[in-house]
């Protein structure tokens, strides 16, 4: 894991997405001009409901779109100043950008340890270095060490999420695109996973771009947030600021001036009027 450079240039932009448009199957327009930037050493959250385009944005960056008949038709994506839109996922992993997919996607019939080693596929720096990083991953996820000999398909959801993050770490990434780590996990486990993400960010200097529906948790751990709706960024700002924003409170955190409020009562047209006009 690339050591975090001096804090002085911590604000350097690693990943810059500008105004991208994504079309699936030549007809379905999913992203309608999304722009965002991920600074070195930051945790950036990408928030929004189902179908807002979070996963598509991450897949556009990691080039996994190519295998799903999706296509970037407009805009550009650069990583440390270089355009990366045409690269294949393997080249991106070598450059230090790796995605942890939604729903874990562990290799079910491989053991946990084999899963982790598969994450080191692109590396050419020898067995010793890989073994060192394996120990490092086991330090962060002691649970994985206990389960290292079991087939990943038979481990619990939380363990699989850890396995997926650990597998990504084995490629020595600089930036991890983390898609819905909280999906289907108990609140306690969600906190645990986010805690580890925060530690990885602080101790190993890994930058994160985090797509998440759980706005509450994500904004507590992230530094900066973007809110996506129907394929557009409708709002962005430092996480602390977003947390206090009355609209975010009302629409995403289920709170308003009058206290907690059911999402059911929020009229969607009001939202549309205010944000999407």
């Amino acid at each position: 894991m690339a050591a975090l450079a001096e804090t002085s240039d911590a604000a350097e932009t690693l990943l810059l997405v500008s105004n991208i448009e994504v079309i699936y199957n030549h007809v379905v327009l999913v992203l309608k001009g999304v722009s965002l930037s991920v600074p070195r050493g930051g945790i950036t959250a990408l928030l929004g409901g189902n179908g807002a385009g979070k996963t598509t944005t991450l897949k556009a960056i990691s080039s996994l779109l190519q295998s799903e008949r999706g296509e970037i038709t407009k805009g550009s994506i650069t990583y440390r100043g270089e355009p990366i839109a045409g690269l294949n996922p393997s080249e991106l992993v070598r450059k230090g950008v790796i995605q942890v997919m939604e729903g874990r996607h562990c290799f079910a019939h491989l053991t946990v340890e084999e899963n982790l080693l598969a994450g080191a596929y692109t590396r050419g720096d020898g067995r010793a270095a890989i073994a060192r990083d394996l120990d490092l991953v086991y330090d962060y996820f002691p649970r994985l060490k206990e389960r290292r000999r079991s087939q990943a398909g038979y481990t619990s959801g939380g363990e699989q999420q850890m396995c997926a993050i650990g597998r990504a770490l084995m490629s020595r990434p600089q930036t991890i695109l983390l898609d819905e780590p909280s999906m289907g996990l108990a609140p306690q486990l969600v906190e645990q996973i986010f805690g580890i993400v925060k530690r990885l960010n602080e101790e190993q200097g890994v930058s994160f771009l985090l797509a998440e529906q759980n706005t509450n948790v994500a904004l507590r751990y992230a530094h900066y947030g973007y809110i996506l709706e129907s394929g557009r960024v409708v709002m962005d700002g430092p996480a602390a600021q977003l947390r206090e924003n009355p609209d975010v409170k009302e629409f995403y955190l289920g709170m308003s001036e009058e206290g907690r409020k059911s999402f059911r009562d929020v009229r969607s047209y009001r939202r549309r009027k205010r944000w999407l006009s």
Binding site: S67, P89, C106, F107, N115, T122
Partner: peptide, 15 residues
């Protein structure tokens, strides 16, 4: 074996 299990995941780790 990783590819046999999950194409997408294999792609995502750079295989």
């Amino acid at each position: 074996r990783a590819v046999a299990d999950d194409h997408q995941a294999a792609l995502s780790v750079g295989i």
